[in-house]
């Protein structure tokens, strides 16, 4: 039972991480890459939480919260400094 759950979730999370990495690689804009990196971070957090649930410990919980904080700071910083490079920004 335990091994089955671990294998199933590992396969699912590996596929999800592969998809997010593909989007980081091809993503047409910087913001797409930031978004995909956020999803990759959420997938890592899910992996940490699944490890905690199956092995019944709480060692990674602070790491999970720190991961949330890092993702927040990263995406806010990048979004803040994405520059509008067109000559007249109000044309549409």
């Amino acid at each position: 039972m335990k091994e089955t759950i671990l294998i199933v979730t590992a396969v699912i999370l590996t596929l999800a991480a592969a998809g997010a990495i593909v989007r980081i690689a091809v993503g047409p804009s910087l913001l797409d890459r930031v978004l995909a990196a956020d999803v990759l971070l959420a997938i890592l957090g899910a992996a940490l939480a699944i490890d905690m649930a199956m092995n019944r410990h709480l060692n990674n919980l602070m790491l999970l919260v720190a991961l949330t904080l890092i993702g927040f700071i990263g995406s806010v910083t990048v979004a803040r400094f994405v520059a509008d490079r067109r000559p007249n920004p109000h044309d549409s």
């Binding site: 699912i12 999370l13 596929l15 999800a16 991480a17 959420a42 649930a53």
Partner: peptide, 17 residues
Amino acid sequence: FLVAGALMSLAAAIGLL
């Protein structure tokens, strides 16, 4: 719960792609 939570990640990856 664990499998559903993992499937959410997969759904996000498919959506991203």
